[in-house]
Design a protein around this nucleic acid. Structure first.
Lengths: 211, 211, 211, 211
DNA sequence: TATGAATGAGAATTCATTCAT
DNA sequence: AATGAATGAATTCTCATTCAT
């Protein structure tokens, strides 16, 4: 999955960026010098593969998000239902801070007004069909869960996606400790979220049958 | 509420920053020159009131967030229940893009690793009791809704706060068009979110009685 | 001697500058804000009495040098000979670090290429007859010592002045610890310098008689 | 002696600084822009070789002082005695105003309270054994002259160093015309100084035999 | 292809001086 | 007369990008 045709230099740059921001660097203040030093290549070399700094960083975010999502996608396939799958995602986020980080940074950057942001949005827009980003993951979750429900409106599908997305953001927010005022334990939080999704889905299905 | 003893120059800087990012500027690439030009004061003057650029920007975010929250807080008081209040908040966000912007930017910055972020977090930590920031607003919503529920654990309270927060973020995400893949109409989205919150609160209350 | 017609504001500025550089401030990096704050007056006020910063600092140096020299001049009058007088000066420098400081700083600045330097040199050039600066002190020492030597050429007089001056600079250098490589004790140093001056004067007188 | 492993850019900066202050610039008001313009390199380039302005200027002073001292040291070796050597130094100072300038500026800066001063002092403290600065030159003069005098106390050695240093300062003072009141001719001055040092040494040696 | 030395545009910050009160 | 808020020119330093090797 690394050998997707990426030149080793490009991968080195991507991994350097990811390492740097996993170490806590601020994406908006990353320098090309830092990146290439970490990547172990010359500054000029980076410019052979990227046309500017934004491309390096946005590319790295895209690369990371893709990798995390693809890996998750493969690994949660055997989980029995949506609830278990979400729990799997949350546990993964809990175990691999770097993953939360990547996922979250990407989301974060997606709504910046920075040059990096514009680039990343463009990359998501132009991505190949088989490149899975976060929203694809969530869509797959919903589609799988609802595969035998007939007559699911596009509207409903999107509502469910949003619902799940909001839960995951909720957990990420919690993990980031951005709100240090909260005292919930991680496992409790996870349980609450999963229980909640279940009941939501249940009530949704019931309401559909009723309709 | 603007006359909180703020010097006019300070306010001018704050408002310049807010205007700039409402216009779509990237907070991390704002220059002091831009800010003071917009504020109509000399570059040096800004440094009479702030000790560095970060203080100007973080201060502006804090000021805006405080203002938006205080105003919201006062205005949704008469709304009958939590659901109506959230709807009120979402409508406000819909009508005043600047509000979404401010609120969202602040949240966004809160989880950066930038210098501005650190400063803003510090400001939130050190704020006066009567300065309402976003989490206070959400806490008030929950406390009001749950005031006649006895035996609400701190844990549960926090969970509910997180739940509501995540929905609002969802709406903001949607507004920002970060998920251009979604086609829901704004009013539908709002309705869905409110319905969802209601049902969660309901099921929460039920589960408490059962317990 | 302070009531030489100096306005109290002017004196306040002078004394503030002297205090500041006695505390170790770098003359070339003194700011008007610092000076007026120390002087206890408004920044604008300083500009009522001085036309620019250089005038304040050069003025302060001139004022200090004049005061130290006048005081020394009065006090060493009763010392029996040149040697005793020089010893008196050196002891004064040893006891009052501020004096060494002032005297030295002034000399130091005299050979700068800074704006302050130009101003101070101008002040020395234009000074009133009764204002004693360092070279006057030294000249008086030489003239007194040589008063009963007939036929002392201007040339010789100047040589002697230079000779004495260089010894005093040597002592100041030593005091400043600029030559931390030297381990002589202060009193020893003083004695050596005086002995040295005596012998020079002696040999000078002898050579004159011989001539 | 320029090929001491110094990169050409570094040397260019050093030489630019020296040229600038030989032309009369004030060391404390030299700007990086001026220096790099004179050196014929880009502003940014200077920062590839120095970490700040102080390092450039202090480095230049140290470089100049070292070069002047090393060259003098080599050239006066064949002079027969201390007196001739000092005369050689003085003549060199007379002929090459730049040399006097460098030497004097360095001494001058050594007793500043500026950042440059601190840096230069540090450089002198940390210098390699084979880097000769001014005090080393003077020490060598004394040691050579006194090599066959047994029982020379450290105290005496230092006294002699001070004595010689004071004469040289005397000549520099004279040269700088800081005291434009002096009318002595240069050659006369030099003669006086040398004669004086001779007699001083003579009387010193005599006193030692007597002791 | 890979490099990193060189660059200069651009940003933050300081501070002498002015001037309205 | 005294003030200090306001200013912007000037300065240091950074860093994306280029290009000769």
């Amino acid at each position: 999955m690394d050998g997707t045709g990426l030149s080793p230099k490009k991968t080195a740059v991507y991994e350097a960026v990811i390492e740097l921001f996993t170490e806590g660097a601020d994406l908006n203040n990353l320098t090309v010098a830092e990146i290439t030093a970490k990547a172990g290549i010359g500054k000029g070399t980076a410019y052979e593969y990227f046309s500017n700094k934004e491309e390096m960083i946005a590319g790295a975010l895209f690369y990371a998000m893709k990798n995390v999502c693809q890996s998750l996608c493969r690994r949660f396939e055997h989980e029995k239902d949506l609830c278990a799958k979400v729990d799997f995602i949350l546990m993964d986020m809990e175990e691999h801070f770097a993953n939360t980080n990547c996922f979250f940074r990407a989301l974060h950057v997606l709504m910046d007004h920075s040059a990096i942001s514009a680039k990343l949005r463009e990359m998501v827009r132009k991505k190949r069909e088989d490149e899975i980003v976060f929203m694809d993951l969530v869509r797959m979750l919903v589609d799988k869960e609802m595969e035998d429900v007939t007559g699911l409106a596009q509207e409903d599908r999107e509502y469910l996606m949003m619902m799940i997305l909001s839960k995951i953001i909720c957990f990420a927010l919690y993990q980031f400790g951005a709100n240090q005022e909260l005292h919930l334990e991680s496992s409790v939080m996870r349980a609450l979220i999963c229980r909640n999704i279940s009941s939501e889905i249940e009530s949704f299905k019931t309401s559909m049958i009723g309709a």
